[in-house]
Design a protein around this nucleic acid. Structure first.
Length: 343
DNA sequence: AAGCGAATCAACCGCGTACCA
DNA sequence: CTGGTACGCGGTTGATTCGCT
């Protein structure tokens, strides 16, 4: 009847993730691909990973999914938001409301959590400041989320419908890859045709976080995991601390920053177009058990979703291309026009 | 150098929806 | 159609870091 029962909450670990756990999760996803999160905590014990990591993830599926999507997933851009991103978020928020997942779909390198945090910590204040300065009337012509008018709500609905339509037509014409790059409307419509695209795209970019994680692991292999229960405490004291937990940026960051997008490309041998001219001291794939080029995370995920339908390189190009900045500009302009209609 | 409040952000929680038998 | 479960999302929390006094 239905699906098998969810992970029982007894013995489920909470709190910050340790590098060990990260590696287990990455290894698992690299082998099986994302999704089917429920099986992650139980199946990870069977992964052929370094003996020191040979234990099950004591995390609930939810936590695994969250960790992957918000932190470990390749292609995530961290650090300061650019002005352009900021503008996009502001306009999209005005357009879509607090639907962070939808907004995040326009910013493939940012997670919804990131955007949400950024909105709550930075942009909200910024807009408030702006609003008080103009006495309730926003200079840019958009209002805050708190004052979503009925018209705005209707507008949102219309936008959704329009996007859904476009997504559908995109999906139906997926066998025409060129449609991805030609239409200007694509700028607005692509995110909703994205389920497959976004996955392919995110793997197209770097994943320096994982890279650093694994790199450090190679430098400082952890002690055997008999003391797994203490790992959180002990690991946060060692060099791993700088690589994953809490995303803290330390002095080591500089030294490690060499492992950037292209570094990771070589690391996972993913971006074949770039791998030629890249040579790094970074740990190579075949040094990491299970992280072989043949079954890299990226391939695992990109293949079933898109590889058969749209040439991956095309999407990569689209996403990595500098032209995408122009696409974002277009989107902003479009949103602005929409916003003008709104208010 | 120490204390304290503010800011930041990873992770958790709960709810709604989708999916499966 | 129904009941049960997984998944995904948005809101919230709390630990950590930062900056000021």
């Amino acid at each position: 009847m239905g699906r098998p029962p969810c992970c029982d909450k007894i013995g489920v670990k909470k709190g910050p993730w340790t590098p060990e756990e990260d590696i287990i999760l990455v290894s698992y996803i690299q082998e099986h691909g994302p999704g089917n999160w429920r099986s992650v905590p139980t199946n990870t014990g069977a992964i052929n990973i370094p003996t020191s990591f040979l234990y099950c993830l004591l995390r609930c599926s939810k936590s695994c999914r969250l960790r992957w999507t918000n932190y470990l997933r390749p292609g995530i851009k961290r650090g300061n938001f650019t002005e352009q991103e900021e503008k996009m978020i502001i306009h999209l928020q005005a357009l879509l409301g607090n639907r962070w997942a939808a907004i995040a779909s326009y910013l493939p390198q940012r997670t919804d959590n990131d955007i949400k945090n950024y909105w709550n910590t930075h942009l909200k204040k910024k807009l408030k400041k702006l609003q008080t300065g103009v006495d309730g009337q926003n200079q840019d012509g958009f209002s805050s989320s708190q004052s979503v008018s009925k018209g705005q709500w209707e507008r949102r609905l219309q936008t959704d419908i329009r996007m859904a339509k476009q997504a559908l037509s995109e999906a139906l014409s997926l066998d025409k890859p060129n449609s991805l790059t030609d239409s200007k409307d694509l700028n607005l419509s692509h995110p909703y045709s994205r389920p497959s695209q976004s996955q392919a795209s995110t793997y197209a970019s770097s994943a320096e976080n994982i890279s650093r994680l694994l790199q450090n692991w190679m430098k400082n292999p952890p002690k055997p995991a008999a003391h797994q229960t203490n790992s959180a405490e002990t690991m946060t004291q060692n060099s791993f601390n700088n690589t994953t937990t809490a995303g803290s940026i330390s002095s080591e960051e500089g030294a490690l920053s060499a492992t950037t997008a292209e570094g990771f490309d070589s690391f996972f041998s993913f971006n074949s177009s770039n791998s030629d001219n890249v040579s790094h001291e970074s740990v190579s794939v075949d040094q990491i058990p299970n992280l072989t080029p043949e079954n890299s995370v990226f391939q695992d995920e990109s293949k079933p979703n898109l590889g058969d339908q749209v040439p991956l390189t095309l999407i990569e190009k689209w996403l990595l291309d500098d032209g995408s900045a122009q696409a974002h500009e277009d989107l902003i302009n479009l949103s602005l026009e929409d916003g003008a209609e709104l208010f």
